[in-house]
């Protein structure tokens, strides 16, 4: 569901499986707990292994965007699978400037 790494002031969360309302709570708690301790410059949400997502995932992204702004860092969303692109574009989160199609 979530694994994290911390390197070069970047906290990366590798998300996997289903992101729905049921799972989002634990993912959020894990990320926010670590971000508050580490104060990363960048939080990277890696969606490569996400199989399913609904609007709870969009809420998760928007919430982390706000959280990182408060902590003085920034958010990046990487490796969004093809099948989630429609949901992402419908949500308008691309206007936040956080979506990166290719991780580099």
């Amino acid at each position: 569901m979530i694994e994290t790494t911390y390197q070069n002031k970047t906290l990366t969360a590798f998300l996997s499986g289903d992101i729905d309302h049921h799972n989002a709570g634990e993912i959020r708690a894990r990320i926010d707990g670590q971000a508050e301790n580490l104060h990363p410059k960048k939080l990277e949400l890696d969606f490569a292994k996400v199989k399913f997502m609904d609007s709870s995932g969009i809420g998760l992204i928007m919430g982390r965007y706000r959280q990182m702004s408060l902590l003085g860092g920034r958010l990046e969303v990487v490796n969004v699978p093809k099948n989630l692109e429609r949901l992402m574009s419908l949500s308008g989160i691309s206007s936040l400037g956080v979506l990166k199609s290719q991780k580099n």
Binding site: S55, I58, G63, L87, S91
Partner: peptide, 16 residues
């Protein structure tokens, strides 16, 4: 009405 962790997109997703 769900606060900061909800996007308010559920109905929009259903419609789309």
């Amino acid at each position: 009405t769900g606060g900061g962790e909800r996007a308010g997109l559920g109905f929009a997703v259903m419609q789309s």
